[in-house]
């Protein structure tokens, strides 16, 4: 009996949280001038492509930029600084070099790097993947929360938008963001999710892409080849993915 009533309490609590999560997303979101962008970096190819995707980012608008990399990926960690170099150099006259993580610049704002555990190491036995994935998910939840507490946009604000192009870590970060929104820890208007399928994907989606499209939690799902968009959208009225041309350069 006690278990049953406890269960009822939990269900009620979840129900209240769920409903308030959606009520708590006012359409009158006060327009803000400054935003926080979060970028999920992955292995070599994904990260190199991300650099091209972010070429026009305005650091005066996105004054706080957080890069997520998985542990042991020194290449991507180094690339974050390179991406910053590219973004900052376009907006600062007599540019001497990018700011270091955590530093503040009056024009380009600030950026930082967060490291999360790997969802699956190369050659890791399959049976242990659920555990390492869960560990990664917890790491992502913590990273997102830590990001909000140190926000330079406004105290305790979560990132406005999360950009990714498909490494395995991205699925975990996006799941973590969705969980935080679902349980109203983060407002629903925050952490909008933009997924850009890799340019290398011509006829089929990557595994991350397939998973994310199936769950349907992305606010914007872009593919870079028209043939791919056509084969996914079919002739139905509802477009599942968007095609705007090549987004890499």
């Amino acid at each position: 009996m006690a278990i049953l009533s406890a269960l009822r309490l939990v269900v009620a609590a979840v129900f209240i949280l769920l409903t308030t999560a959606f009520i708590a997303s006012p359409s009158l979101y006060p327009p803000t001038k400054l935003s926080h962008i979060m970028v999920v970096l992955g292995s070599g190819g994904h990260t190199a492509e991300m650099m091209s995707l972010l070429r026009d980012i305005n650091p005066r608008r996105y004054t706080y930029r957080t890069y997520i990399v998985s542990s042991g990926d020194g290449f991507s960690a180094g690339k974050a600084a390179e991406i910053e170099q590219m973004i900052q150099s376009k907006h600062v006259q007599s540019f001497i070099g990018p700011t270091k993580a955590g530093e503040f610049h009056p024009i380009t704002g600030t950026w930082d790097l967060k490291i999360v555990p790997r969802a699956r190491k190369i050659h890791q036995p399959l049976y242990s993947t659920p555990f390492s994935s869960l560990w990664c998910l917890i790491g992502c939840l913590r990273a997102l929360h830590a990001t909000s507490t140190t926000s330079t946009i406004a105290p305790h604000e979560y990132p406005d938008v999360i950009i990714t192009n498909g490494p395995a870590t991205a699925v975990m970060v996006i799941l973590a963001a969705t969980i935080l929104k679902l349980f109203a820890v983060a407002p629903a208007r925050k952490m909008k999710i933009i997924y850009v399928e890799s340019w290398a994907r011509v006829k089929t989606l990557s595994l991350s892409g397939k998973v994310l499209l199936r769950i349907g939690i992305c606010d914007k799902f872009l593919v870079q080849w028209e043939s791919l968009a056509k084969s996914i959208n079919g002739t139905g009225a509802k477009r599942k993915v968007e095609w705007r041309g090549f987004l890499v350069e």
Partner: peptide, 25 residues
Amino acid sequence: WVGHNASLAPIIDAVVGYEDDVRAR
């Protein structure tokens, strides 16, 4: 190859709500 590629930046702006922001003003 160069010169006719779409930019992601305006798509991000639209999702974040910059277009609405500008229109509201």
